[in-house]
């Protein structure tokens, strides 16, 4: 009896939390489609004109170009620098391995606001702050370790004897990498790439601290729009929020084909 009441309470809580999520998300969607909406369950009339307005007023074409540039570059660099590191970590023990692992862990554990301010300070000092390059370099700090830790188990699964076999048959190191390791590591690279991509697009703090007038990513532009609520109709801000949401959701759906939801919190899950 007590067990059933208990289970019912847990179920109701999960239901309530889910409803609250659905409410939060759909309120934004409905508001973006409203002509005017004021203290009624649903707006009186619907329109899609806020999307055109939002696209124009918030210069979304430009913002999206910046976002795509940042996200793709960060992903490419994270995989490029991260894969060799993951390979060595999976294959070899070396004297300072624990120190190196700690160095990779810290940017994922320490909140971005804490190290973002000193990082922004140094980058502005060298005049990299406020540029797209600055946003990319800063975002790479947590994304590189993320890529390494996602890639690690994938590389560990590749049997080393395959590499030896290739070497015995006369393949050079480059050929072994190109023809054996890389094809086998492809699923890992895809997973890591998607996770880094979606995390970079959604990453706020570092992009916010490093972006200047011409280097705002979508989520930073959205922050400024919400922050300056009242400057523009709330419906247009919500239209922008929906555009952002659709982009993230598409990537999330793609990512969830390869990753279990519990792996999404990997970045802070520790071991």
């Amino acid at each position: 009896m007590r067990g059933r009441v208990w289970r019912l309470a847990v179920f109701l809580f999960v239901l309530g939390f889910t409803l609250n999520l659905v409410g939060i998300v759909s309120h934004v969607v409905v508001s973006s489609l409203a002509k005017r909406w004021f203290a009624t369950p649903l707006p009186g009339a619907f329109t899609t004109e806020w999307y055109a307005y939002s696209w124009r007023e918030f210069q979304l074409a430009y913002v999206l170009t910046v976002t795509a540039t940042v996200a793709v570059t960060v992903t490419a660099l994270a995989l490029l620098l991260g894969f060799p590191a993951a390979y060595v970590l999976a294959r070899r023990g070396f004297p300072a391995k624990n120190a190196v692992l700690l160095l990779y862990f810290l940017p994922l554990l320490i909140p971005q606001m804490t190290y973002g301010i000193p990082l922004a300070t140094s980058l502005y000092r060298y005049r990299i702050g406020g540029t797209i390059a600055g946003v990319i370099l800063a975002n790479l700090v947590p994304m590189l370790p993320l890529a390494i830790f996602v890639l690690l188990p994938f590389v560990e699964q590749i049997s080393e004897s395959l590499e030896w076999a290739a070497r015995v048959h006369g393949a050079g190191p480059w050929q072994v990498f190109r023809r054996v390791v890389l094809p086998l590591a492809l699923p890992g690279l895809l997973t890591a790439g998607l996770l880094v991509l979606v995390n970079t697009v959604a990453n706020f703090e570092l992009s916010f601290l490093l972006s200047g007038a011409g280097s705002q990513t979508l989520v930073v532009a959205l922050y400024y729009a919400v922050f300056a609520a009242g400057m523009r109709p709330i419906y247009s801000v919500d239209a922008m929020a929906v555009i952002y949401m659709v982009i993230v959701l598409l990537m999330l759906v793609a990512a969830l084909r390869f990753v279990r939801p519990t792996q999404m919190v990997f970045r802070l899950g520790g071991k």
């Binding site: 999960v14 939390f17 889910t18 609250n20 999520l21 409410g23 939060i24 998300v25 309120h27 934004v28 508001s31 979606v198 959604a202 990453n203 706020f204 989520v219 959205l222 922050y223 919400v226 609520a229 709330i234 801000v237 919500d238 929020a241 952002y244 949401m245 993230v248 959701l249 999330l252 969830l256 279990r260 939801p261 519990t262 999404m264 919190v265």
Partner: peptide
Amino acid sequence: ITALLVLPIALGTVLVAEGINGF
């Protein structure tokens, strides 16, 4: 259910904040 729960993590603080302001 777990995929649904990942939603606020993936969407990020700014969008959740705007949604809360509305809802």
